[in-house]
C-alpha cells in the first residue's frame, strides 16, 4: 500500500490524481463543521453572505471534538457520519470546496457534485478519536462559538491519516468492497 502525502489547500490538480482506495496523509489547515454549522453555512450561501472561511480548495472535516484537557490542543477528534451533511454539501462543492473528511456513504447528489467540481471524499477511521487527535497540532474556533462542539474550527494538521473513499471520477470504495448477498 502506497502512502501518499498531500497538502492543503487541496488543489484541483492534486485532487484529480487521487484514487478510491489510496491511503493518504494530510498536512495543512482544515476546517471542522458538522450538522448545525452546515445549516448556517448553507443559509449564508443562499443569502449571498460570506462563509466563515474561504471555501476555494478547502477541506472540511465532519467532526465535533470532546473538550481539550488543560494544556492539550484538543480532545478526542474522530469523524462523524457524513451523510447527515449531504443536503448541504452540493452547494458547498459548487462554491469551491475540494475535500471532505468523514465516515460512511454519500448520496448521488453529492457524488454528482463531486465529479462536477473535481472534489474528493476521505474517510478517517470512525471511533479512533484519541489516535486522530495526535495529528492535530492547533485548533481555533473561528465561527459559531455558540454551537459548542459544533462550532467551526480551523485545525492545523500534520500527517492526518485518511483513506480516499470517493474520488473525483466517482469511484466509490464502499460500494466496490461490499458484496452483500444475504438471503
Amino acid at each position: 500500500m502506497d502512502n501518499i502525502h498531500i497538502k492543503t489547500p487541496l488543489l484541483l490538480e492534486t485532487a484529480d490524481t487521487l484514487k478510491a482506495g489510496d491511503h493518504i496523509y494530510i498536512t495543512g489547515v482544515i476546517y471542522t463543521a458538522r450538522d448545525a454549522a452546515h445549516e448556517r453555512m448553507y443559509a449564508a450561501l443562499k443569502n449571498g453572505e460570506p462563509l466563515p472561511f474561504d471555501p476555494e480548495n478547502a477541506v472540511i472535516y465532519y467532526m465535533g471534538p470532546s473538550p481539550a484537557r488543560p494544556g492539550r490542543v484538543i480532545g478526542s477528534a474522530g469523524p462523524t457520519t457524513a451523510s447527515r451533511m449531504d443536503k448541504y454539501t452540493p452547494a458547498l462543492l459548487d462554491a469551491g470546496l475540494r475535500g471532505m473528511i468523514g465516515k460512511g456513504r454519500r448520496n448521488d447528489e453529492v457524488k454528482a457534485a463531486m465529479i462536477r467540481n473535481h472534489a474528493v471524499y476521505f474517510a478517517a477511521i470512525g471511533g479512533a478519536g484519541a489516535l486522530l487527535s495526535r495529528a492535530i497540532k492547533a485548533s481555533e474556533v473561528i465561527a459559531y462559538d455558540d454551537l459548542g462542539t459544533e462550532a467551526v474550527r480551523r485545525l492545523t494538521v500534520e500527517d492526518f491519516p485518511a483513506i480516499v473513499v470517493m474520488d473525483a471520477k466517482g469511484n466509490d470504495l464502499y460500494s466496490a468492497e461490499q458484496k452483500i448477498e444475504y438471503i
Binding site: M63, G64, P65, S66, R69, R72, G75, S76, A77, G78, I125, G126, G127, A128, G129, A130, L131, S133, R134, T149, P161
Partner: peptide, 18 residues
C-alpha cells in the same frame, strides 16, 4: 489503529471516541 487508539485513550485520558 483501533488497538492503538484504545491504548492512547487509557494512557492519555482522551475519550476513545469524541
Amino acid at each position: 489503529e483501533l488497538q492503538e487508539n484504545l491504548k492512547i485513550a487509557g494512557e492519555d485520558m482522551i475519550p476513545i471516541c469524541q
